[in-house]
């Protein structure tokens, strides 16, 4: 499980970096799918198989297919890719890179002060469902309202 965690983490990291430096939209999407699938493997290694399956089905499946459909509709050609390459100047990356690096250092220095190891205990679907349809029922209802609002908004916005 430890090996699975670290190897999937390395793949997720490399694929995510490839997303943000890629110039072709479709290649970036495929890298993003790889990154999401390796995060699903990490969830599995952490003893969350239900979250892993949802990550693979909803994120890597549904959301990324939505992205791919829109990319096919837009049909961005070589011109956009050349434009992207022209925007990829190293000088543009200095400021955001420094800021993000400082933020990352703060995160890491905060997190390295504790020392507790994980002993992955599998949380079953039954435990999650009992909580989800017990104390968190209102949150589920609100999530369904949010999805309905998203559906109506997307229909209205994408209409001609």
């Amino acid at each position: 499980m430890t090996l699975l965690f670290y190897s999937a983490g390395a793949i997720a990291l490399i694929a995510t970096l490839s997303v943000i430096i890629s110039t072709n939209v479709v290649h970036a999407l495929v890298y993003l799918i790889i990154s999401l699938l390796s995060v699903a493997v990490i969830f599995f290694a952490l003893g969350a198989p239900f979250a892993a399956m949802l990550e693979a089905i909803v994120y890597a499946g549904a959301i990324m297919v939505l992205f791919l459909f829109v990319m096919m509709m837009l049909n961005l050609g070589q011109a956009t890719e050349d434009e992207e390459r022209a925007w990829m100047r190293p000088s543009l990356w200095i400021g955001p890179g420094v800021l993000s690096g400082i933020l990352l250092l703060q995160f890491v220095s905060t997190m390295l002060t504790h020392d507790v190891t994980l002993a992955p205990v599998e949380v079953s679907v039954r435990d999650i469902s009992l909580l989800l349809f017990g104390p968190w029922l209102l949150a589920v209802e609100l999530a369904s309202m949010l999805l309905l609002a998203g559906l109506i908004a997307a229909y209205h916005l994408a209409k001609k």
């Binding site: 499980m1 190891t117 002993a119």
Partner: peptide
């Protein structure tokens, strides 16, 4: 089952978050 230090999971999440922010 071997144990994974949980900070490593959080650090991975932080690194992915910063990658997204940079993007």
């Amino acid at each position: 089952m071997d144990a994974i230090p949980y900070e490593h999971g959080l650090i991975l999440a932080a690194v992915l978050f910063v990658c997204g922010l940079l993007g």
